[in-house]
Design a binder for these strands. Structure first.
Length: 274
DNA sequence: AGGTTGACCTGGACGC
DNA sequence: TGCGTCCAGGTCAACC
């Protein structure tokens, strides 16, 4: 499931392959749920535009576009199983392909998504007060310690659920929430607003460490995640609690427990995390 | 308004 | 072998 490190890996890989190229035409499937903007609006905005930059905001891939002075952004959310692939046109179109962008360099940018939780949309900046896409929350890799602490003040929800709330911190999903909480030694069910400043300080550091390490390893491939070249990541080999239910904790050998928090499976060490 | 729950999807794992 | 059931989870709408 693509979270911040996977999305960043894909965005960087796509950027390296397509920036500076012009979108010559676009094909879209007829699956309306995939399109937050209508396929017509997406097609109008993208066709003839040059790709200036591909980067990541939260879990969203942002494609900066420019055409005759007009600026726009193409937003790609991978959902659970979304893939953004740069392919030669003679490579067969995989099943569940929902958009194909033909590029001036001869290759295609393809959006493939079996489970269809992914979303495509466009933002146009017509006027001066239209801001580029900034996401629903704060960037985990950039937030200061005081701002991080302030996010959770007064919150009664479990810290695990608060970490998954993208309007607070965006980019963290189920894997890195569990891994961050383990490395910070904090129980997922603790009330967010009752964590001490020291604990939140540790949590921020743990999240940054684990996210950066995962980016270095190309992300976690737990289901069918692959980067822009279709290559899997390696961070799943570094997971200490996620999907390790019943296996011994790598620190204290206590079996890892699995519970449900905020409707999501949650893995933790009952001894190391208090 | 903050918090919680279920719907949306489909492939894969599992049980009989 | 094959069928049915369950599970995975990012996000959003609906509800409390």
């Amino acid at each position: 499931m693509p979270e911040l490190p996977e999305v960043e890996t894909v965005a960087n890989g796509v950027h390296a392959r397509v920036h500076g190229q012009t979108i010559q035409s676009i094909w879209t499937s007829n699956k309306p749920q995939t399109f937050k903007s209508t396929p017509e609006v997406i097609s109008e905005t993208l066709t003839g535009s040059r790709i200036e930059r591909v980067h990541r905001v939260g879990k969203t891939i942002v494609v900066d576009l420019k055409r005759s002075g007009m600026e726009a952004q193409f937003l790609v959310h991978l959902g659970m199983t979304g893939r953004l692939l740069v392919s030669e046109p003679d490579v067969p179109i995989p099943p569940h392909t929902h958009a194909v962008l033909s590029l001036s360099g001869g290759r295609e940018l393809r959006f493939v998504d079996a489970r269809r939780f992914g979303r495509l949309s466009v933002l146009t900046t017509h006027e001066e007060d239209d801001q580029p896409y900034s996401g629903p929350g704060k960037e985990p890799l950039l937030i200061s310690p005081p701002d991080f602490i302030a996010l959770f003040r007064g919150r009664k929800t479990p810290i695990k659920a608060a970490l998954l709330n993208q309007s607070l911190l965006h980019g963290v999903g189920n894997i890195y929430a569990d891994e961050g909480l383990f490395r910070a030694g904090i129980r997922p069910k603790r009330q967010a607003g009752r964590l001490t400043r020291a604990e939140l300080g540790r949590l921020r550091e743990a999240l940054i460490t684990v996210l950066k390490h995962a980016i270095e390893l190309g992300g976690s491939s737990v289901s069918d995640y692959v980067d822009a070249d279709g290559v899997r990541g390696f961070f799943q080999l570094e997971h200490r609690v996620y999907m390790r239910t019943g296996q011994p904790c790598l620190v204290c050998s206590t079996p890892i427990k699995k519970i449900v928090v905020g409707g999501r499976s949650t893995h933790f060490c009952p001894v190391c995390q208090q």
